Simulated scan of single mutants.
Amino acid sequence: MRKIVLPLLASLALASPALANETRVEARGGVIWSNGTSEDTWGGAVGYDFDLGQTTFAGLEFSGDKIGTEGTKVAFGATGRLGVKAGTGTALYGAGGYTTEACDACKGQWHLGAGVEQKISGPFYVKAEYRHYFKNDVVADGDALVGGVGVKF
């Protein structure tokens, strides 16, 4: 087993993908707050980024995130990204989309945000992202700050 896994991991670490035209998978966690209360949140996402030129990209992301409090469920999201390549392995982006309800009595919310993604080694990256969730007739405005780690293919 080691004879297969170790060379595979080594080849992934030495691969040098570009910032776009690639699929990405990530795990993330952070904090979400609204109305003076805060809770932990965690989840994952899969996405694809497209080159728009030498310094710009656009992407799509599908996610599932869970607020770590009783009575919530996984909220699924669809998000678009638009960004710039800001140096070696760094991407800055804006994001916007829709997230389904996080509890049975809730409604889905539109969201906008911004983030930074940094390549750390080969196909691996870390990211930090802020999102604002907009008020609707049932759910108040909310904000989230998450960090993540992912891999690109």
Rank of each mutant, 00 (worst) to 15 (best):
A18P: 08
L12I: 00
N35Q: 15
G64K: 04
Q109K: 09
V138W: 08
G71P: 11
G97C: 13
D141I: 07
T41C: 06
Y125P: 01
E101K: 15
G148M: 03
G147T: 05
F76A: 14
T37C: 01
L82P: 09
G44E: 05
A45P: 02
G113M: 01
D49Q: 12
W42N: 08
Y133I: 03
D51I: 05
S38H: 08
A102C: 06
R81C: 03
A45H: 05
V5N: 08
G97I: 07
F124S: 04
T88C: 09
A91T: 11
T99I: 06
T55L: 13
E39T: 12
G150A: 03
G97W: 10
G44L: 13
E129M: 01
Q54V: 14
G122S: 01
A105M: 05
N21A: 10
Y133K: 07
Y93T: 00
G147H: 04
T88F: 11
G43E: 06
K3Q: 03
Y130T: 02
F134G: 04
L92V: 05
A128E: 00
S38G: 04
A78D: 08
G53V: 05
C106L: 15
L19F: 11
K73Q: 15
R81S: 07
D104V: 05
F134P: 08
Y133W: 12
T23S: 10
I4K: 15
G53I: 06
T79F: 02
L14W: 04
T90F: 03
G108S: 06
A86Y: 12
G89A: 06
K127F: 05
L9K: 12
W33T: 04
G115E: 00
G113N: 02
A95C: 07
G148N: 13
T100C: 13
A15K: 11
V146L: 07
A20Q: 02
T88Y: 12
T55Q: 14
I32Y: 01
V151S: 10
G122I: 00
K73E: 15
S38Q: 12
A13P: 06
V151W: 08
V31P: 02
E39D: 13
N21M: 09
R28L: 06
D104A: 02
D65K: 09
C103F: 15
P7N: 09
A10K: 04
I32E: 14
K3D: 03
L19R: 14
A114F: 10
W33L: 07
G83C: 04
V149G: 12
L9H: 06
Y125V: 04
H132K: 00
E22C: 12
A75M: 09
K152Q: 02
G115F: 00
A58I: 09
A114E: 05
G43D: 09
T69K: 14
S16M: 01
T37W: 04
V116W: 00
P7F: 06
K85A: 04
L8E: 00
T41N: 06
A18M: 03
A75E: 04
T23H: 06
A27K: 07
H132T: 00
L52K: 06
C106I: 13
V116S: 00
G148T: 02
G97P: 10
Y133S: 09
